[in-house]
Amino acid sequence: MKTLNVARILTACVIVVLIIYLFNSTQNHNLKENRSDIRQFFTDGEQKKVVYNKHLQLFLDGHPSPAVGGKALFNHSLSYDQINRISHCRQYADVDWLKGAENFVKDKYVCINHHDYLKENNTILIEVGGNFGADASLFTAVYNPRHLIVEPIPYYATLLQEKFKDNPRVTVLNFGLGQKTETIAIEFKGEGSNIYSNDFGQKKINVSVINSTEFFQNLGVGIYSVDLLSMDCEGCELDVLENLLETGMVKYFKNIQLEIHSMAYFIDKENYLTRYCTLQEHMRRTHRLTYQYKHMWENWRLLDLK
């Protein structure tokens, strides 16, 4: 009887080991499939119109897609003090907006000069909204980090690819980031093209927008941290920030810099203020402001960084 029990225990152990092995094999297979999918995503599909080149290996190789766990930070309840600060933010928005605009004019290069840490080796900058490359050129000239630019408008994406074709540290991808993957129509009117404009007679073009969380996961964010996420995407900033907070991925970005666009402020002020002022309080859980021209430009840095 004793021998029979030992045999049963050994059999059970073998079964458990086999199950673990099969589970890990499946996970590894899925991991490889995910990495294969993201490469195919960057190369295939006329509708997506995205560009993949060898420089993206810098971001993909060795960085499998992470599983982001934990309770979403964005769903945490707000304290009494936080609710009061949101109310104050909404109440004095007009004053803050005018003051922010006035002061930013005096310090308009803060979005470039504020990031000396990018001089360190192998720092990573993800720039959302490249336009014709004014900021990208300055970032490259001053810091030359590993630099990924996401630009949804084909004209600008092509211009950026040509501009940085001789810099192996710069990668340009032709799509935008948002809360969900979709194709949207925008009015192309040069610099400042955005989803809010509705000018009669303006040429409309379709652009691809990718769910920001899925994009960052496929890049491997979470296995490593991004030194700076800089967003000047004519209105997508709050969408991306909300996604990062909802999933908890926000903690993998050491610095998050964003331009707040006045178009959203004037078109749907109540909705904009609700989102912006609430996001300010949720960001304080993991980050602190290092500069802010309210409703214009601001930078958030992880609490445990200098």
Rank of each mutant, 00 (worst) to 15 (best):
L177Y: 01
L177E: 00
G178M: 02
G178N: 03
G178Y: 04
Q179P: 09
Q179M: 12
Q179W: 12
K180D: 12
K180E: 10
K180C: 10
E182N: 10
I184R: 01
E187T: 02
E187V: 01
F188H: 15
F188D: 14
F188A: 15
K189N: 15
G190T: 06
G192Q: 08
S193A: 07
S193N: 06
N194S: 15
N194P: 06
I195Y: 09
I195W: 05
S197V: 14
S197I: 13
S197E: 15
D199L: 15
F200M: 15
F200K: 15
G201W: 04
Q202N: 14
Q202F: 15
N206S: 15
S208A: 15
S208G: 11
S208N: 14
V209N: 04
V209W: 03
V209P: 01
I210S: 04
N211P: 00
N211C: 09
N211F: 02
T213E: 07
F215Y: 01
F216Y: 07
F216R: 00
Q217T: 11
L219W: 04
L219C: 06
V221S: 01
V221T: 05
Y224A: 06
Y224K: 09
V226T: 00
V226I: 09
V226Y: 05
D227N: 13
D227I: 01
L228I: 04
L228R: 00
L229E: 00
S230H: 11
S230D: 12
M231E: 01
M231H: 03
M231Q: 06
D232V: 07
C233L: 08
C233Q: 07
C233E: 03
G235R: 04
G235V: 05
G235I: 05
C236L: 05
D239A: 14
D239K: 13
V240G: 06
L241K: 10
E242N: 15
N243A: 09
N243P: 07
L244V: 06
L245V: 06
L245Y: 03
E246T: 14
G248I: 04
M249K: 03
M249N: 04
K254N: 13
K254E: 09
N255T: 05
I256H: 00
I256Y: 00
Q257N: 09
Q257M: 11
L258N: 05
L258G: 07
L258Y: 12
E259K: 06
E259G: 06
H261F: 13
S262G: 11
M263S: 13
A264W: 08
A264Q: 12
I267S: 11
L273G: 08
L273Y: 09
T274R: 14
T274I: 13
R275M: 10
R275A: 11
Y276F: 13
L279Q: 11
L279D: 09
Q280H: 12
E281W: 07
H282I: 08
